[in-house]
């Protein structure tokens, strides 16, 4: 039986008085691999930030495993199992790789898990956070989120600006993250092809609303649908 992990009901949210998401409803089941795609400025990042409690929720509710988290603070949501990997990576420059990871260590998480997923980080564990390449910083950002022992991982454009070989490594890591079906992964990504290859379900966001929510196969088989929504037809 499918178990609902995360649900948003008629959510209108944004920054200050500005509304970015409008009357948005979305349900994500436990173990889902969701690819969230859309044009720049469509509201994908705002959607993840809203789930994490980093925006202003004007209307609607957000539930995590059936419990209302609409008014909880970001750290409370994190303690309940939400983990965000920000688009900006947000590495702490004064800390080494290992210190970046240890600084948020919580629950059952362990450094070994992070190093098993990204062996490169173990090699560079004593390097400063800013002494890493873009790809390594992204690995660190993902590994650091895993240190909070999340059940739902929200990845905000993790492949942005990275070389193809690094993107391939990261996609393999996402596969490993979702492999046992216990962890839910929501991947926001501009690279639609990679995102659709990873996910079983696609959500297309346009102007703060969901215009498509269904299997990735449909989008792969109907390029014109993808073209219409995000201007890319080569998924």
């Amino acid at each position: 039986m499918t178990e609902v992990a995360l649900s948003l009901h008629n959510v209108t949210a944004g920054y200050g008085q500005t509304h970015i998401l409008r009357d948005l409803t979305l349900t994500v089941n436990r173990g889902d691999r969701v690819a969230m795609i859309g044009r720049n400025g469509a509201g994908k990042t705002t959607l993840l930030a809203t789930v994490m409690g980093l925006t202003r929720l004007h209307r609607g509710t957000i539930h995590l495993r059936g419990g209302d988290i609409s008014h909880l603070r970001p750290y409370q949501r994190s303690m309940l199992g939400l983990g965000l990997v920000p688009q900006t990576r947000d590495i702490f420059p004064s800390l080494t790789v290992e210190e970046n990871l240890t600084s948020v260590l919580r629950g059952d998480a362990s450094l070994d898990e992070a190093y098993a997923l990204f062996p490169r980080l173990k090699e560079r564990r004593n390097n400063g956070g800013t002494q890493l390449s873009g790809g390594e910083q992204q690995m660190l950002a993902i590994a650091r989120t895993l240190m909070t022992a999340p059940e739902i991982v929200l990845l905000d454009e993790p492949l942005e600006g990275l070389a193809p070989v690094i993107c391939e490594q990261l996609m393999q890591a996402f596969e490993a993250l979702a492999a046992d079906g216990k962890r839910t992964v929501v991947l926001v990504e501009q690279q639609a092809a990679a995102a659709l290859k990873f996910a079983s379900r696609a959500v297309v966001v346009t102007n703060g609303s969901i215009v498509y929510d269904g299997g990735t196969d449909v989008l792969k088989q109907q390029p014109e649908l993808l073209e219409r929504h995000i201007g890319v037809a080569h998924a």
Binding site: L54, Q76, S94, L95, S103, V104, R144, T148
Partner: peptide, 26 residues
Amino acid sequence: SPLGLSARGIKDSAARMVAIGSPVYW
């Protein structure tokens, strides 16, 4: 300790710590 390291992270950027779910205030 994780507390001390997170304090340094907060000094680097409190907003970043909030974004990754750290209880900055406490």
